[in-house]
């Protein structure tokens, strides 16, 4: 599948933004830190900026961005529409939490309900993002049980590292604020690893014989393409990355997404408060680049069944 940069940026940025929202909302609901207005402003501001930037960039790949509002209408059947509705719905409790935290320095009492709603809606939005891909039977690498889990755990991991980064400016980091994001990153590592193993092992059961229905006659081989130049279907669905490149990129993204942030978090347990933001920043940048590579691979490694009509040997 062709990796569209607007979609890669969207899922990376909004995934991290929703993850950060969950961390801030849950930590505030559980009274993890005092309701400092500046922390609320910077933390929630960063989360909502990432979410909003991601959503706006996702409209860049539309042929008709001015009609994007129509995408809120088909939530009964479409995961893309559900994602849009949930994304917008998340702003409402997030605004209540934000106003209460920043202007009144208060996030206990009834505001906890808003915090819980933020967490549930943010996670459901990421779930819907994952389901857009996981629900397509035409793409074997996406139509996997772990696809959604990867989106969810990576959102919590990227959000978690941002949470550490924001928090490191305000107070000496409490141990839980390092340990829990660490757990999230390790969880994301295992989920992604099992996902990669699953797509490598999933059998490529469909062949040109299935696509044409002519297997009863004999081996089917694409002889004559319908057109001389690549058409939309081939450009969009036929993008493929070389196997050895994919292996190298998988390793690189795993180092950046998991290894570097884990080392940084472990160092954060030891370093002084003044240098903490620096270590957190290194972790944030490494993970950001790592997830962008991971998202690119998510598309580039995915084979679409339609390519069986264009000479692919299996899908």
């Amino acid at each position: 599948m062709h990796p569209a940069y607007s979609v890669i940026f969207f899922t990376t940025a909004s995934g991290a933004g929703y993850g950060l929202l969950v961390w801030l909302a849950m930590a505030s609901a559980l009274g993890g830190f005092p309701p400092d207005w500046a922390l609320g402003l910077i933390g929630l501001g960063l989360a909502l900026a990432l979410v909003t930037g991601g959503l706006l960039s996702s409209t860049a790949h539309l042929g008709r961005p001015e009609r994007a509002w129509r995408a809120f209408s088909q939530w009964r059947s479409s995961w893309l529409s559900r994602e849009g509705v949930l994304a917008v719905a998340t702003y409402i409790p997030a605004a209540i939490l934000g106003i209460s935290w920043v202007f009144y320095e208060k996030f206990d009492g009834p505001v906890i309900i808003a915090s819980l709603l933020v967490s549930v809606l943010a996670l459901t939005t990421v779930y819907a993002t994952g389901m857009i891909y996981a629900s397509l039977p035409t793409i074997r690498a996406w139509n996997q049980p772990l696809t959604v889990a990867v989106y969810l755990t990576l959102a919590m991991a990227t959000g978690g590292i941002l949470f550490v980064f924001v928090l490191s400016f305000f107070a000496p980091l409490p141990t839980w604020a390092i340990a829990l994001p660490l757990v999230a990153i390790i969880g994301a590592y295992f989920t992604k690893r099992f996902y990669w193993e699953a797509i490598d092992e999933a059998p490529r059961t469909l062949r040109p014989e299935n696509a044409t229905g002519l297997g009863h006659i004999g081996k089917v081989h694409h002889l004559e393409p319908p057109h001389a130049q690549a058409n939309y279907v081939m450009r969009e669905m036929g993008f493929k990355v070389a196997r050895n490149h994919a292996d190298k990129l998988r390793r690189l993204s795993a180092y950046l997404m998991f290894l570097v942030p884990i080392v940084c978090l472990l160092l954060l347990l030891m370093v002084s408060t003044f240098t903490a933001p620096l270590f957190a920043l290194v972790a944030v940048l490494a993970m950001g680049i790592g997830v962008v590579i991971e998202r690119w691979l998510f598309f580039a490694e995915a084979e679409h069944v339609v390519m069986l009509y264009y000479g692919a040997d299996a899908a």
């Binding site: 539309l62 994007a68 039977p137 058409n231 279907v233 669905m237 339609v306 009509y309």
Partner: peptide, 22 residues
């Protein structure tokens, strides 16, 4: 008149029946 050109339908089709008009 109401299509936004998100191309998701073309991903969902196994038969390559939908093409995007650039």
């Amino acid at each position: 008149d109401t299509c936004i050109g998100c191309k998701l339908c073309s991903w969902a089709c196994p038969y390559g029946a939908r093409e995007y008009d650039e």
